[in-house]
Protein backbone atom coordinates (compact mmCIF):
# COMPACT_ATOMS: atom_id res chain seq x y z
CA UNK A 1 0.00 0.00 0.00
CA UNK A 2 2.96 2.32 0.60
CA UNK A 3 3.79 2.01 -3.11
CA UNK A 4 0.28 3.11 -4.01
CA UNK A 5 0.56 6.06 -1.62
CA UNK A 6 3.85 7.05 -3.27
CA UNK A 7 2.05 7.02 -6.63
CA UNK A 8 -0.70 9.21 -5.15
CA UNK A 9 1.90 11.70 -3.89
CA UNK A 10 3.42 12.07 -7.37
CA UNK A 11 -0.02 12.61 -8.90
CA UNK A 12 -1.17 15.04 -6.21
CA UNK A 13 1.87 17.29 -6.29
CA UNK A 14 1.21 17.95 -9.98
CA UNK A 15 -2.55 18.20 -9.53
CA UNK A 16 -3.97 21.62 -10.26
CA UNK A 17 -7.16 20.59 -8.41
CA UNK A 18 -5.24 20.11 -5.17
CA UNK A 19 -3.74 23.58 -5.35
CA UNK A 20 -7.14 25.09 -6.14
CA UNK A 21 -8.66 23.34 -3.08
CA UNK A 22 -5.84 24.47 -0.80
CA UNK A 23 -6.00 28.00 -2.19
CA UNK A 24 -9.72 28.22 -1.43
CA UNK A 25 -9.18 26.97 2.12
CA UNK A 26 -6.24 29.36 2.52
CA UNK A 27 -7.95 32.49 1.23
CA UNK A 28 -11.43 31.95 2.68
CA UNK A 29 -10.44 32.79 6.31
CA UNK A 30 -8.73 36.01 5.17
CA UNK A 31 -11.88 37.01 3.30
CA UNK A 32 -14.03 36.17 6.34
CA UNK A 33 -11.81 38.16 8.74
CA UNK A 34 -11.98 41.15 6.39
CA UNK A 35 -15.75 40.71 6.06
CA UNK A 36 -16.17 40.58 9.86
CA UNK A 37 -14.05 43.71 10.18
CA UNK A 38 -16.42 45.47 7.76
CA UNK A 39 -19.42 44.33 9.80
CA UNK A 40 -17.89 45.84 12.97
CA UNK A 41 -16.73 48.91 11.05
CA UNK A 42 -20.32 49.65 10.01
CA UNK A 43 -21.62 49.32 13.58
CA UNK A 44 -22.40 45.58 13.70
CA UNK A 45 -21.36 43.36 16.56
CA UNK A 46 -19.88 39.87 16.39
CA UNK A 47 -21.61 37.32 18.61
CA UNK A 48 -19.88 33.99 19.19
CA UNK A 49 -23.07 31.90 19.23
CA UNK A 50 -24.07 33.04 15.75
CA UNK A 51 -20.80 34.18 14.13
CA UNK A 52 -18.82 31.24 15.61
CA UNK A 53 -15.44 32.87 15.05
CA UNK A 54 -15.06 36.33 16.60
CA UNK A 55 -11.35 36.44 17.49
CA UNK A 56 -8.09 34.48 17.21
CA UNK A 57 -8.99 32.03 19.99
CA UNK A 58 -12.34 31.11 18.45
CA UNK A 59 -10.49 30.66 15.13
CA UNK A 60 -10.10 27.03 16.23
CA UNK A 61 -13.77 26.73 15.22
CA UNK A 62 -13.13 27.60 11.56
CA UNK A 63 -14.19 24.07 10.51
CA UNK A 64 -17.49 24.60 12.33
CA UNK A 65 -17.97 28.03 10.76
CA UNK A 66 -17.20 26.74 7.24
CA UNK A 67 -18.48 23.17 7.49
CA UNK A 68 -20.63 23.26 4.36
CA UNK A 69 -17.93 25.00 2.30
CA UNK A 70 -15.30 22.45 3.32
CA UNK A 71 -17.63 19.55 2.54
CA UNK A 72 -18.59 20.87 -0.90
CA UNK A 73 -14.97 21.63 -1.82
CA UNK A 74 -13.79 18.21 -0.63
CA UNK A 75 -16.66 16.38 -2.35
CA UNK A 76 -15.73 18.04 -5.65
CA UNK A 77 -12.04 17.28 -5.19
CA UNK A 78 -12.66 13.62 -4.29
CA UNK A 79 -15.14 13.12 -7.14
CA UNK A 80 -12.53 14.25 -9.67
CA UNK A 81 -9.57 12.69 -7.89
CA UNK A 82 -11.14 9.20 -7.96
CA UNK A 83 -13.56 9.51 -10.88
CA UNK A 84 -10.82 10.49 -13.31
CA UNK A 85 -8.89 7.30 -12.52
CA UNK A 86 -11.85 5.36 -13.89
CA UNK A 87 -12.48 7.71 -16.79
CA UNK A 88 -8.83 7.90 -17.90
CA UNK A 89 -8.49 4.15 -17.42
CA UNK A 90 -5.45 4.71 -15.20
CA UNK A 91 -6.98 2.59 -12.45
CA UNK A 92 -6.19 -0.40 -14.71
CA UNK A 93 -2.48 0.38 -14.49
CA UNK A 94 -2.41 -0.34 -10.76
CA UNK A 95 -5.02 -3.10 -10.57
CA UNK A 96 -3.65 -5.09 -13.50
CA UNK A 97 -0.34 -5.32 -11.66
CA UNK A 98 -2.07 -7.53 -9.14
CA UNK A 99 -2.54 -4.74 -6.59
CA UNK A 100 -5.27 -5.59 -4.11
CA UNK A 101 -8.47 -3.64 -4.63
CA UNK A 102 -8.76 -3.18 -0.85
CA UNK A 103 -5.32 -1.55 -0.78
CA UNK A 104 -6.20 0.60 -3.77
CA UNK A 105 -9.41 1.77 -2.07
CA UNK A 106 -7.64 2.43 1.22
CA UNK A 107 -4.82 4.35 -0.47
CA UNK A 108 -7.42 6.69 -1.98
CA UNK A 109 -9.18 7.04 1.38
CA UNK A 110 -5.92 7.80 3.21
CA UNK A 111 -4.92 10.32 0.53
CA UNK A 112 -8.32 12.05 0.71
CA UNK A 113 -8.07 12.07 4.53
CA UNK A 114 -4.59 13.62 4.40
CA UNK A 115 -5.62 16.26 1.87
CA UNK A 116 -8.63 17.20 4.00
CA UNK A 117 -6.41 17.30 7.10
CA UNK A 118 -3.93 19.62 5.41
CA UNK A 119 -6.85 21.71 4.11
CA UNK A 120 -8.56 22.15 7.48
CA UNK A 121 -5.24 22.80 9.24
CA UNK A 122 -4.51 25.57 6.74
CA UNK A 123 -7.99 26.99 7.13
CA UNK A 124 -7.85 26.89 10.94
CA UNK A 125 -4.37 28.39 11.17
CA UNK A 126 -5.27 31.11 8.66
CA UNK A 127 -8.53 31.78 10.57
CA UNK A 128 -6.71 32.12 13.88
CA UNK A 129 -4.02 34.36 12.38
CA UNK A 130 -6.43 36.55 10.37
CA UNK A 131 -8.92 37.03 13.20
CA UNK A 132 -6.05 37.65 15.68
CA UNK A 133 -4.69 40.37 13.41
CA UNK A 134 -8.11 42.03 13.10
CA UNK A 135 -9.71 41.38 16.50
CA UNK A 136 -6.84 40.19 18.73
CA UNK A 137 -6.43 36.65 20.05
CA UNK A 138 -8.91 37.04 22.93
CA UNK A 139 -10.43 33.95 24.49
CA UNK A 140 -13.23 31.41 24.23
CA UNK A 141 -15.79 32.28 26.85
CA UNK A 142 -15.94 29.74 29.68
CA UNK A 143 -12.77 27.86 28.62
CA UNK A 144 -9.93 27.85 31.13
CA UNK A 145 -7.54 25.29 29.54
CA UNK A 146 -7.46 26.60 25.96
CA UNK A 147 -4.80 24.26 24.57
CA UNK A 148 -6.66 21.15 25.71
CA UNK A 149 -9.96 22.57 24.42
CA UNK A 150 -8.40 23.53 21.11
CA UNK A 151 -6.90 20.08 20.54
CA UNK A 152 -10.12 18.24 21.46
CA UNK A 153 -12.31 20.57 19.41
CA UNK A 154 -10.12 20.54 16.32
CA UNK A 155 -9.81 16.71 16.46
CA UNK A 156 -13.56 16.27 16.86
CA UNK A 157 -14.34 18.67 14.03
CA UNK A 158 -11.79 16.97 11.78
CA UNK A 159 -13.23 13.51 12.50
CA UNK A 160 -16.70 14.83 11.60
CA UNK A 161 -15.27 16.07 8.28
CA UNK A 162 -13.43 12.78 7.81
CA UNK A 163 -16.68 10.81 8.13
CA UNK A 164 -18.06 12.76 5.19
CA UNK A 165 -14.82 12.37 3.25
CA UNK A 166 -15.21 8.62 3.72
CA UNK A 167 -18.75 8.78 2.31
CA UNK A 168 -17.54 10.80 -0.69
CA UNK A 169 -14.83 8.21 -1.38
CA UNK A 170 -17.46 5.45 -1.25
CA UNK A 171 -19.75 7.36 -3.60
CA UNK A 172 -16.88 7.96 -6.03
CA UNK A 173 -15.95 4.26 -6.13
CA UNK A 174 -19.57 3.24 -6.64
CA UNK A 175 -20.43 5.75 -9.36
CA UNK A 176 -17.03 5.44 -11.16
CA UNK A 177 -17.66 8.76 -12.90
CA UNK A 178 -16.62 12.25 -11.76
CA UNK A 179 -19.82 14.02 -12.80
CA UNK A 180 -22.20 11.45 -11.37
CA UNK A 181 -20.17 11.26 -8.17
CA UNK A 182 -20.27 15.04 -7.84
CA UNK A 183 -24.06 15.09 -8.12
CA UNK A 184 -24.59 12.27 -5.60
CA UNK A 185 -22.04 13.72 -3.15
CA UNK A 186 -23.77 17.09 -3.37
CA UNK A 187 -27.18 15.50 -2.84
CA UNK A 188 -25.85 13.51 0.13
CA UNK A 189 -24.35 16.63 1.72
CA UNK A 190 -27.47 18.71 1.27
CA UNK A 191 -29.82 15.82 2.07
CA UNK A 192 -28.23 14.70 5.32
CA UNK A 193 -27.17 18.20 6.31
CA UNK A 194 -30.56 19.80 6.00
CA UNK A 195 -32.90 16.84 5.70
CA UNK A 196 -31.89 14.87 8.78
CA UNK A 197 -33.69 17.41 10.95
CA UNK A 198 -36.98 16.02 9.66
CA UNK A 199 -36.57 13.18 12.17
CA UNK A 200 -36.76 15.78 14.93
CA UNK A 201 -40.39 16.27 13.99
CA UNK A 202 -41.22 12.65 14.75
CA UNK A 203 -41.79 11.24 18.20
CA UNK A 204 -39.95 7.93 17.86
CA UNK A 205 -37.12 8.74 15.43
CA UNK A 206 -35.70 11.93 16.93
CA UNK A 207 -32.36 10.27 17.65
CA UNK A 208 -31.91 9.34 13.97
CA UNK A 209 -31.03 12.99 13.26
CA UNK A 210 -27.77 12.39 15.09
CA UNK A 211 -26.87 9.27 13.16
CA UNK A 212 -25.60 11.73 10.57
CA UNK A 213 -22.35 13.55 11.30
CA UNK A 214 -23.47 16.70 9.52
CA UNK A 215 -26.20 17.23 12.09
CA UNK A 216 -23.47 17.69 14.70
CA UNK A 217 -21.35 19.81 12.39
CA UNK A 218 -24.15 22.18 11.40
CA UNK A 219 -26.25 22.40 14.53
CA UNK A 220 -23.91 21.99 17.54
CA UNK A 221 -22.31 24.84 19.45
CA UNK A 222 -18.72 23.73 19.92
CA UNK A 223 -18.02 26.51 22.41
CA UNK A 224 -20.83 25.60 24.81
CA UNK A 225 -20.54 23.03 27.63
CA UNK A 226 -23.49 21.08 26.14
CA UNK A 227 -21.75 20.87 22.77
CA UNK A 228 -18.40 19.91 24.30
CA UNK A 229 -20.12 17.16 26.30
CA UNK A 230 -21.20 15.53 23.04
CA UNK A 231 -17.66 15.19 21.60
CA UNK A 232 -17.39 11.48 22.41
CA UNK A 233 -20.78 10.82 20.78
CA UNK A 234 -19.70 12.79 17.72
CA UNK A 235 -16.47 10.80 17.43
CA UNK A 236 -18.35 7.49 17.86
CA UNK A 237 -20.89 8.34 15.13
CA UNK A 238 -18.05 9.49 12.85
CA UNK A 239 -16.00 6.34 13.36
CA UNK A 240 -19.04 4.12 12.72
CA UNK A 241 -19.75 6.11 9.54
CA UNK A 242 -16.14 5.70 8.37
CA UNK A 243 -16.06 1.95 9.07
CA UNK A 244 -19.47 1.18 7.57
CA UNK A 245 -19.01 3.33 4.44
CA UNK A 246 -15.49 1.99 3.83
CA UNK A 247 -16.54 -1.63 4.32
CA UNK A 248 -19.46 -1.15 1.95
CA UNK A 249 -17.27 0.68 -0.56
CA UNK A 250 -14.57 -2.00 -0.52
CA UNK A 251 -17.04 -4.89 -0.85
CA UNK A 252 -18.81 -3.29 -3.80
CA UNK A 253 -15.58 -2.09 -5.45
CA UNK A 254 -14.26 -5.66 -5.37
CA UNK A 255 -17.26 -6.68 -7.46
CA UNK A 256 -17.01 -3.78 -9.89
CA UNK A 257 -16.03 -4.50 -13.47
CA UNK A 258 -13.30 -2.09 -14.59
CA UNK A 259 -13.86 -0.93 -18.14
Amino acid sequence: MLNLLTAERIKLLRSRKLWIVLSILFLFPIYQAANSKMVVHYGGKLVQATDTVINGATGILMIDKNGLTILLVMSAFISFFIGEEFQNGTIRNALSLGRSRTHYYLSKLVTAALVSLVGVVIMTVMGMVSFSVVFGFGEVAGISDYVSYALKTFSTLYVLILANVSIYVTISFLTINSGVSLVWSFLYTIGTGFGAGIFQQTEHFKQVTFWFTESFLFYSDFASPAGIAKYSEMILVSLITIVVSSALGIILFKRTDIK
Partner: peptide, 21 residues
Protein backbone atom coordinates in the same frame (compact mmCIF):
# COMPACT_ATOMS: atom_id res chain seq x y z
CA UNK B 1 -7.19 3.85 -25.13
CA UNK B 2 -3.77 4.64 -23.63
CA UNK B 3 -4.34 4.98 -19.87
CA UNK B 4 -2.28 8.02 -18.92
CA UNK B 5 -2.45 10.99 -16.57
CA UNK B 6 -3.04 13.87 -18.99
CA UNK B 7 -1.68 16.53 -16.64
CA UNK B 8 1.63 14.72 -16.11
CA UNK B 9 4.69 14.61 -18.35
CA UNK B 10 5.96 11.37 -19.90
CA UNK B 11 8.56 11.02 -17.14
CA UNK B 12 6.00 11.65 -14.38
CA UNK B 13 3.61 9.11 -15.88
CA UNK B 14 6.40 6.53 -15.75
CA UNK B 15 7.25 7.53 -12.17
CA UNK B 16 3.64 6.85 -11.14
CA UNK B 17 3.74 3.43 -12.77
CA UNK B 18 7.09 2.66 -11.13
CA UNK B 19 5.50 3.49 -7.76
CA UNK B 20 2.43 1.38 -8.57
CA UNK B 21 4.66 -1.57 -9.30
Amino acid sequence: TPALYPELTARENLRVQAANG
